[in-house]
Design a protein around this nucleic acid. Structure first.
Length: 370
DNA sequence: TAAACGTGGCG
DNA sequence: TCGCCAAGTTT
């Protein structure tokens, strides 16, 4: 049962001082040592903030290190081509982040002389940067007093205030709380500390309340509701799609791959062609039909290579992958951006989504024709 | 406003 | 196996 919403406010002038001081003291002792906390280069911090969107620290660190070696400056990123950028992002997901990063770098070179902007207004105009990321960058890089509201902060504040509704229903209230709480004397450390609190103590399940500097002020702890908050959002079950996928071989022992259109799911990445299996359609018939529709060629469907179950953010798929033989016609980029014949050894040079990387691995390990 | 948008980890 | 969640933004 949700808590009553008519309790006295948690954030009073006198409690604010306690919350700020106790959090900063805790952070001094228990804050995490993270790679992007060793720099104040706004570019490096920007990269970290984008990679960290919906992505855990542990996943990000190796990508962050590689990225800064490969693209050490905004100019270097702007000058790269999109395929290089997507390859560096391969496996991180939400690929629009990489496309926006690339676009934004080019925009910064054109309109800000290659210098990352230092005003909230200018930063918010960059593609891929919303309010939370802007606050994260401006506070971390320039110590500007701009609040944040990421998943950690939403959870921490939902508990401290015993928010009776899902966070998405109270965004205005949460932003106000984050802004009022923010320590204007120490915005960099305060924002980082708030996120660390959420990531290490005020965790989604089994929060370590006995170690928390805020436990005496936390309404959820007081009500013993820390395991029931924040109120979860309902989501519909994910639909499941059956997909037919073709590994099409030509007489030279090459394979046909296509590059997806620049926007939408997996935009700009390469893939093995295929499509959705219609009701009452066999995998083989689906593959022949899809390849004709998408590439304008005729293929003969052969042995199954691998079956892959994969989950995207909003649906499940089963990829039914078959070897195919190119029979006739010149491949045309009818429903994609580009098509190309490549050898198995060349596949590693192209950015592929994770489910397709599994196909490549199967090709490199299994006994294949040719 | 709500849905689209990846992947990995955990209970 | 399955649902939930993670340093959110865009349309």
């Amino acid at each position: 049962m949700p808590p009553p919403s008519c309790l006295p406010p948690v954030l009073t002038p006198s409690s604010l001082d306690f919350l700020r001081c106790s959090l900063l003291d805790w952070y001094t002792i228990s804050g995490r040592d993270l790679p992007w906390r060793h720099t104040r280069d706004p570019y490096a911090i920007w990269i970290s903030e984008i990679m960290l969107q919906q992505t855990q620290v542990k996943t990000v660190i190796p990508y962050y290190d590689r990225w800064l070696r490969q693209f050490p400056t905004i100019e270097a990123l702007a000058a790269a081509d999109q395929q290089q950028v997507l390859k560096a992002w391969q496996g991180l997901g939400y690929y629009a982040r990489a496309r926006h990063l690339h676009q934004a770098a080019q925009l910064i070179v054109q309109t800000h002389g290659g210098q990352f902007p230092d005003t909230l207004e200018a930063v918010l105009k960059l593609p891929g940067i919303g309010r939370t990321t802007a606050g994260g960058i401006l506070s971390a890089a320039y110590n500007q007093p701009v609040p944040i509201l990421d998943g950690n902060v939403k959870r921490v504040l939902s508990r401290v205030m015993a928010l009776p509704v899902p966070p998405s229903k109270a965004m205005k209230h949460l932003w106000q709380a984050s802004s009022e709480l923010l320590d204007r004397q120490h915005p960099r450390d305060f924002n980082q500390a708030l996120m660390d609190l959420g990531a290490t103590l005020c965790t989604p399940s089994n929060p370590a309340c006995l170690l928390c500097p805020w436990r005496t002020a936390c309404r959820a702890f007081d009500l013993n509701m820390q395991n029931d908050l924040p109120v979860s959002e309902r989501r519909a079950p994910l639909p499941h799609k059956q997909i037919g996928v073709a590994v099409i071989w030509n007489q030279q022992g090459q394979i046909l791959i296509d590059r997806r259109r620049p926007d939408g799911l997996l935009g700009g990445l390469w893939e093995f062609p295929g499509g959705k299996i219609e009701p009452n359609e066999t995998v083989e018939a689906c593959i022949r039909r899809e390849i004709q529709e998408e590439l304008g060629i005729e293929v003969e469907v052969g042995d199954r290579l691998i079956t892959i179950d994969h989950t995207y953010s909003h649906f499940h798929v089963t990829l039914n992958v078959h070897h195919c033989r190119h029979v006739q016609g010149e491949p045309q980029p009818i429903e994609c951006a580009e098509v190309r014949w490549v050898t198995v050894d060349e596949l590693d040079q192209f950015p592929f989504p994770k489910a397709n990387v599994q196909i490549i691995t199967a090709l490199q390990t299994a006994n294949c024709p040719h």
